[in-house]
């Protein structure tokens, strides 16, 4: 049976791991490759590396990091941040990334999704969406949650799917960093609305939240950062717990 995936996310600034709390106030959480290795050994199903450095220099550092990750780690990984055009995708895939995640660039230029899908296949193209609930509507944001757009979550993700997205990575800004659980209601609606896998992000605080995001939120994968980085939840225990609760997971 296809296993539900557990995905630790590593935010990278100048080659080091950081974790945002509600998208601001970073705390240091260690060396990205070493951390990735530990997660892989513990049974993480995939990894996500997000480059939050905006500078050209930072981007070069990140590409070097992607090469080191690919050389070291034997599970799939997605990279995101700083992807504006096909050339960026090419650079990161050639460095050894399995998938790329596009966010703001896809909203600004939706055609980018088609270009990625056409050149590298839909399975490579993860469309990430940051959205916040406002007056009962899920509004999509640009630039790591800083700039509101007129895009609505369900309409935009459906458009992304039609254009060739292989997966949707949905971060609820409302839930992110709060550790009170994922946006399960919206996630279940997304999952019903789409025919591609949905990765849930934002809100994990305890093991029950992962159970809920799979059982209630119908997510195909759950992404989290700080609960893993600071050892609040260990992946082998999480997987054992989920397995006991009847969720199909890969236990190693």
């Amino acid at each position: 049976m296809l296993a539900k995936r557990i995905i630790p996310c590593l935010d990278i600034k100048n080659g080091k791991t950081v974790k945002g709390v509600n998208f601001i106030n970073f705390r240091d959480a260690g060396d990205p490759v070493e951390l990735g290795c530990v997660y892989s050994e513990q049974g993480a199903d995939e990894l996500v590396y997000l480059d939050i450095t905006a500078s050209h220099e930072g981007r070069k550092t990140f590409t070097e990091l992607v090469k080191r990750v690919a050389a070291t780690i034997s599970i799939p990984f997605t990279v995101g941040g700083g992807i504006y055009e096909l050339q960026d995708v090419d650079r990161l895939l050639n460095a050894g990334a399995d998938k790329v995640s596009v966010n703001s660039a896809a909203i600004k230029n939706p055609h980018l999704i088609e270009e990625i899908a056409m050149h590298y296949g839909t399975q490579v193209c993860v469309v990430a969406v940051d959205a916040n609930i406002e007056n009962g509507q899920w509004r999509c944001y640009l630039n790591g949650g800083r700039i509101p757009t007129d895009k609505e979550l369900f309409a935009w993700t459906k458009e992304a799917e039609n254009r060739g997205a292989g997966e949707i990575l949905f971060t609820s800004m409302t839930h992110d960093g709060v550790k009170a659980g994922y946006a399960n209601e919206a996630l279940a609606m997304l999952s019903d609305n789409l025919n591609i896998p949905v990765i849930a992000s934002g809100g994990a605080g305890c093991m029950e939240h992962f159970l809920d995001v799979f059982a209630i939120g119908k997510a195909d994968a759950a992404l989290a950062a700080s609960v893993f980085h600071f050892g609040e939840i260990r992946i082998p225990e999480l997987k054992r717990y989920l397995s006991e609760k009847g969720i199909a997971v890969r236990e190693t």
């Binding site: 296809l2 296993a3 199903d45 839909t122 399975q123 292989g166 025919n195 896998p197 195909d220 994968a221």
Partner: peptide, 16 residues
């Protein structure tokens, strides 16, 4: 060819 909505394509992830 999907039989039900949960049968998403591509088949992506870890399987036995």
């Amino acid at each position: 060819i999907p039989h039900k909505h949960e049968d998403k394509i591509p088949h992506m992830g870890w399987n036995n």
